[in-house]
Computed example of a mutant assay.
Amino acid sequence: MASRAAQKRLTREYKSISENPPPYITAHPSESNILEWHYIITGPENTPYHGGQYWGTLMFPPNYPFAPPAIRMHTPSGRFQPSSRLCLSISDFHPRSFNPAWEVSTILIGLLSFMTSEEMTTGSVSASEAERKYHAARSRWWNSTGGGSHLKAENGAGKGNIKAGDGGAKFRSEWPEVDAENWKWMRENKIDTATGNRIVEPGGPSCGPQLGIAAGGSGHQAHAVVDAVIQQRDAGQGWIFRNKLVLAGAIIFVYVLIARLLGEGSS
């Protein structure tokens, strides 16, 4: 339970961050627990996180602001281990270095700054730019479906149930409007809610393997298919067409032979 000082301080900070949110950041406390805050970071331009929707939590101690919160990011990003506590100078890993003057906005700006750097710490991971862009493209799907687990999730969001497996229930309970926008986005972009991949319409253009050549198949497989196609082509053509060069040579030979015989006879 929050102390009176923490209750007063966090109430004031919620008002402040609602009226003047930092760039790329939105946050609010849970209705059931003012010590449990939920944030969404929108990936900034010119970063591999651009357009990504990164949801996480700040769990404040009852004696805040005299101790820092536990910081987690639940959405896979290629930068942090999902739902793991992050070791930062502004997190509960370093209570002695925390400054009581720092506010929720200060903490989240610091998290965003660290996210867009390449520094490593407990809870962070190393990934390529392509991998981070991949996670960014799937982030909205992941948040609202619990990583596709919505198809089998039977229980609603419970205390601490903040990760893939709850069918997106916790995200939906904290961000109902954002969740509705995500589902609309998935419908408009034809996203398979089970996998997060774009649905390919039947009969639509495809860049997949042709002629029965399996993706990653060997060169021998390719040659076998090409040979089969040639055989099918030849089977539909006559003997004369397939042997036209031989016939042409024979005709020329016979013509020359007849010409010589006629020449010798006239002489």
Rank of each mutant, 00 (worst) to 15 (best):
E177W: 01
R96M: 07
N46A: 14
Y49T: 05
T42G: 05
N243W: 03
W55T: 11
I252V: 11
R172K: 15
A235Q: 13
L86K: 06
S89G: 10
E174T: 08
N189S: 02
K170C: 09
N197D: 14
P48S: 11
Q221A: 13
S91E: 11
S3L: 12
I240G: 02
A169R: 13
L262V: 14
W141K: 04
N20S: 14
E201P: 04
N46P: 06
W239I: 04
P202S: 01
A101S: 14
G148H: 04
E188Q: 10
S83T: 15
D227N: 11
T42C: 00
R4H: 07
S84L: 07
R233Y: 11
L86T: 03
F171K: 01
H50N: 09
N243M: 03
A248L: 08
R172V: 03
I90Y: 09
P65H: 14
T193D: 02
K184R: 14
P95R: 10
T145H: 02
N63D: 15
R72C: 04
L247E: 08
A235E: 14
L88P: 00
I41F: 03
A127M: 07
Q53F: 09
W183V: 10
V104Q: 10
S117Q: 06
I258Y: 07
G249Q: 01
G219K: 03
F114S: 09
W55R: 11
S91N: 10
N161F: 07
K8E: 12
C87M: 09
S89I: 12
N46R: 14
A214H: 05
A248K: 02
N182H: 15
I258L: 13
N161T: 13
T116Y: 09
W37V: 00
R140K: 14
H135G: 00
K152C: 03
E201T: 11
G158P: 03
L247P: 05
G263E: 10
G167L: 04
I41M: 14
A164N: 08
H38F: 13
G123P: 13
V225T: 05
S32A: 13
A6F: 02
P61M: 11
P100F: 12
A137R: 12
M115V: 13
R79I: 15
A180L: 13
K8R: 13
E188I: 00
E119W: 10
N182W: 03
P82K: 07
H220Y: 08
S32E: 15
A248H: 00
K184E: 14
E154W: 06
L261H: 08
K244R: 13
T26K: 12
W102E: 06
G236H: 07
G156S: 10
A27W: 03
R96W: 06
P29V: 01
W239S: 04
G204V: 03
G146H: 05
A224Q: 14
I252N: 00
Q81I: 15
G43S: 09
D179G: 04
G216R: 08
P68E: 06
I213T: 00
G165L: 06
D166T: 10
S218I: 04
A259N: 07
Y24D: 15
I240K: 06
S126D: 08
G208R: 03
S84C: 03
L261M: 11
